[in-house]
């Protein structure tokens, strides 16, 4: 009952979000400012996390394979495939749900409780479309880009740390990174990033849009939004892996 209530309201909101924007020029302007606020500001975080995770994954694989019968290229390959398949899509999705998602819920939620959304409605502006559509489009658009950045810097992280601590030579690492590369993995993960980008923007927007109360409720809604988004990302990861892998 609870689930169907939220699902119904969520899809009704989406229908309102995806109705034709009132003013294209204003919409485009909002889109670029959202890409800047939600995307460009996230690149730094993604780079840092990816370098560390790439390094750590490389070390983990290396330490768990100190067996002369296992070929050393497996280390680079292990890091590469972990990044491409799960880390840079799913784990990054979970991280962005925390950063971008809570930002979206608290921004839209405070606009709701301070009557700014009512204010838009009373002017005859479709508040859902005006506020939420640029965010969804911006996040869906930048997520694949962040994915590529994450894979790239994750590989660099491995390159820095693996040879850096003497677990593997640079040549072996690079050899592994290039070994048996399957481009299908990348396209599969790009599909995932579209789905996750949609979840990370639309679900927190939903929680923010229907907040009732004050600052306390906005905070509670942010937490709920992040948890719900995380669970849905994992569920969709399962579904998509089953469907297209």
């Amino acid at each position: 009952m609870h689930f169907f209530y939220h699902a119904g309201r969520y899809f009704t909101l989406l229908a309102k979000v995806f109705s034709k924007p009132e003013r294209h020029k204003i919409y485009i302007k909002r889109l670029f400012s959202e890409i800047d606020a939600l995307g460009v500001n996230t690149v730094g975080l993604v780079v840092v996390i990816s370098i560390f995770m790439g390094g750590i994954i490389t070390l983990q694989v290396a330490y768990n394979m100190q067996n002369p019968f296992l070929p050393s290229y497996l280390i680079g390959l292990g890091n590469r495939d972990t990044l491409i398949l799960e880390f840079s899509s799913t784990i990054l999705g979970l991280i962005l749900a925390g950063k971008i998602g809570s930002n979206i819920t608290s921004e839209i939620g405070s606009m709701r409780v301070t009557e700014q959304i009512d204010s838009l409605e009373i002017m005859g502006v479709n508040s859902a479309s005006y506020l939420i559509l640029p965010k969804i489009v911006a996040v869906v658009f930048i997520f694949p880009f962040l994915y590529i950045v994450s894979v790239f810097f994750g590989l660099i992280g491995g390159m820095l740390v693996g040879p850096g601590v003497g677990a593997i030579t640079a040549a072996e690492y690079l050899n592994g990174v290039q070994y048996l590369f399957n481009p299908h993995y990348v396209s599969f993960s790009l599909v995932k990033t579209f789905v996750f980008g949609f979840l990370v923007s639309s679900i927190p927007a939903y929680f923010g849009y229907f907040v009732e109360g004050g600052a306390f409720e906005v905070g509670a809604a942010s937490t709920k939004a992040v948890v719900t988004t995380n669970i849905l990302i994992l569920i969709w990861d399962l579904i998509l892996t089953q469907l297209i892998m």
Binding site: E115, S119, G124, N126
Partner: peptide
């Protein structure tokens, strides 16, 4: 029609509700 009519309305909310 409501949206059109709303362009004839102005409203001042309790907290001002300016876009911050």
């Amino acid at each position: 029609e409501r949206k059109l009519l709303r362009q004839e309305m102005g409203m001042v909310f309790q907290g001002g509700a300016l876009f911050d």
